[in-house]
Design a protein around this nucleic acid. Structure first.
Lengths: 339, 339
DNA sequence: ACGTCCAGGACAGGATCTGACCTACATCGG
DNA sequence: CCGATGTAGGTCAGATCCTGTCCTGGACGT
């Protein structure tokens, strides 16, 4: 009970609550004298955690922003909230911090009590997927496993379903997780095939670490990201889309996000968007969500998709089309296979 | 040199890395004997942190899931990733954990070093907003301030713009943050008006805590959530939407998320959706994103909105609309048709 | 002016921590 | 099957550190 390190941790936890704590209250709560509390505060300050104290009658201690991150002490609900947030972030990677995001998720999932894990799972499925069509989506849990294996330099075994549908079992030395074109890829050295391979994470099933450590291995020659993008561009069919938006360029940029595509102004009220994508649905919905008039110049696949979408939405709103459908008994196809 | 508490924290930080640490390596890194490491491990276990050890030649220590959350020790990038994730979560509240999510954000923002805060800000604006139309959106930073004030029971001052556009300055005792209909509301006691009020967070400007604490105050009679929803339903105009989806009910539920609306099966391939919403755009896009045929039976406003959307999308894909531009080619420097 | 709060020095006694050395047990690889 | 390497844990002596109890001083609000 009266263990000094334990008390320091508890103190850190109390100070993280966004309120001020008078020394006397802290002393009472931790079962020590106020003098000891002052000493503990001093110790925390020596450790680099900036504890701010406001003098005076209504004063107290509180932990403020410093130069280093203090250990975050979360209660159950906060931990769940963070886990859910990170999982959705893993589904919608944000440029520049994808890897850190997954790393944080791996760190959290490693120590997340099982009862909380269950809650995260149910909440996660309850969340609106927010991906437009029924595209393949990665399991954040799998992603965390992969990230842990990368960090641990641990050999990994998993089942992989190639693009042509053929399944295979792999034993690889994971090297890096990268995001390109809104998709997760695992760069790894395939021990069976004795060469570097890039795996789409959404096609990886049941990954589990083998416990075998492998010596760090370097990609031949080039940089990892360059290697991946060069391979991907030759591998995945991407479309180059061009559209005219009837919206000021500045507004389009803020609405679309900076990371996506190139927006160049035409005049004050219109601009041109050039974007590369391999998921037409995603781009189509982003455009439709803008709320302004726009014209799509290409590729033909995107035009076609938009035409179908427009027709479907119009049918949904039109009683005439509804009557025709009712007569024909048109059934809806299952959402198409992945692009 | 480095005293015991600091070493324990460092040890906890190392063990959170998803890899195994042999005791000898930990000893070397922390500058103590392996015996001391073993003792520290024992101390951590006494504190409730489950440190797992694998015996044998390739053994080592690692922190595993236990019954309580250990303090999370994050590096800079991970902290940024979590902050970004929470901010987007604040924009898209997930049922049941909205409050915890904001609380975690407040806790993190309180101790986030300023350089990291800047990175979070820029990344956040770069993120795709993902809200369909140009609806008002809350500033996560403000939300964190409000959450801190609620937790701290601290009086709050802010400028408020009422629904009729009239601006006012308020001094309130914050009581609770709630989400209803995908919007954030602050329930507070208005000190100037001497009564309970509900404020829409997106209409609050420049909130800042006054430092004055207020005694905890209880809502009269009813429960907070009940009070809010009863007030809101009499306040905000909500639409009751009914639609038929050509999609199995089970799939519709997983695609739409459980929290939204009531889905009841009609037969194996179709189902009926009943939903309440005050933002037609949101519902319209959720329906369009489903990818299946659907018909909207009401309200008329939704039908109208969908018709306009369908027409716009069709225009975007229609060669007729493009004909004027196509005549001149689609070069960027071509001035668009005059407004 | 007064009360309340933080800041920090000095000191003595006692609790606690460390390192060294020991044995026992689990696991892997030859 | 044996040895190497890892964890698990006991014991002991000495040094270290920590705590509670004094104390003075400064800051702030009433």
């Amino acid at each position: 009970m009266s263990d000094t390190p334990a008390r320091l941790l508890a103190l850190l936890s109390l100070l993280q609550t966004p309120r001020e704590w008078p020394g006397s209250e802290l002393a009472e709560r931790l079962g020590v004298t106020t003098r000891t509390i002052r000493r503990d505060i001093g110790r925390l300050r020596d450790l680099g955690y900036p504890v701010e104290a406001t003098m005076g009658a209504v004063g107290g201690y509180r932990l403020v922003a410093g130069t280093a991150m203090p250990p975050l002490l979360l209660d159950d609900e906060e931990a769940v909230a963070i886990a859910v947030g990170l999982r959705t972030a893993a589904r919608h990677p944000v440029a520049g911090i994808e890897e850190a995001s997954v790393r944080a998720l791996a760190k959290l999932e490693q120590v997340l009590p099982s009862r909380l894990r269950r809650r995260v799972g149910t909440l996660n499925t309850a969340t609106v997927p927010m991906v437009p069509a029924g595209g393949p989506s990665v399991d954040p849990q799998d992603l965390a496993v992969l990230a842990a294996a990368v960090a641990n330099r641990e050999r990994l075994r998993f089942a992989y379903q190639a693009a042509d549908g053929a399944g295979s079992r792999r034993l690889v030395e994971p090297y890096r997780l990268v995001v390109a074109e809104r998709r997760w890829y695992l760069v790894a050295y395939d021990d069976d095939r004795d060469d570097w391979r890039i795996f789409r994470v959404d096609r990886i099933r049941q990954p589990h670490p083998t416990g075998m450590r492998n010596a760090p291995r370097e990609l031949p020659g080039e940089d990892a990201a360059a290697y991946v993008t060069s391979t991907l561009y030759s591998l995945a069919p991407t479309y180059s889309a061009v559209a005219t938006l009837h919206m000021p360029a500045a507004e389009a940029i803020t609405r679309l996000g900076e990371a996506s595509g190139v927006v160049e102004p035409i005049d004050e009220r219109t601009c041109r968007l050039r974007d590369h994508t391999d998921t037409l649905e995603w781009l189509a919905f982003r455009l439709a969500m803008l709320g302004c008039e726009f014209e799509v110049h290409g590729p033909p696949e995107l035009v076609e998709y938009l035409a179908a979408l427009g027709a479907r939405v119009t049918r949904a709103a039109s009683p005439v089309a509804r009557a025709a459908q009712a007569a024909d008994g048109i059934a809806c196809d299952t959402p198409g296979p992945d692009s």
